[in-house]
Amino acid sequence: MADSPEEIYKSIKKIKVIGLMLAVFTILTVGLSYVELPTHSLNIIVGMILATIKAALVALIFMHLNHEKVLIYKFLAFTITFVLALFILFYASSTDPLVFDGF
């Protein structure tokens, strides 16, 4: 944790830069959504990649996950695992065929 005044001044600067980057990425997201890529799925993928980058900036810098304690990484690892299980299994079960030909 940045505790000395110099470090805090440094981090204030960083925070402002990241804030600006987020705004830029938002503009980029909106702009790209009006560009018709070869398929709409591609639009979704690109949009989600941009959103993930923004989310990562917020999580890593604003929520200081770039230098957090091991314990918190452990919590989050489990949570992310289960959320992914939720996404993947929901998706798989809504597209899974009734007839199964083996692996």
């Binding site: 695992t81 289960f82 299980a85 299994l89 798989a92 079960s93 899974d96 065929p97 009734l98 007839v99 199964f100």
Partner: peptide
């Protein structure tokens, strides 16, 4: 967390998921 749908075998879930 990874076993829940064994309550749902009769919902018409696909065979791969059932497996």
């Amino acid at each position: 967390f990874l076993v829940w749908a064994h309550h749902m075998y009769l919902t018409g879930m696909g065979t791969m998921m059932s497996t």
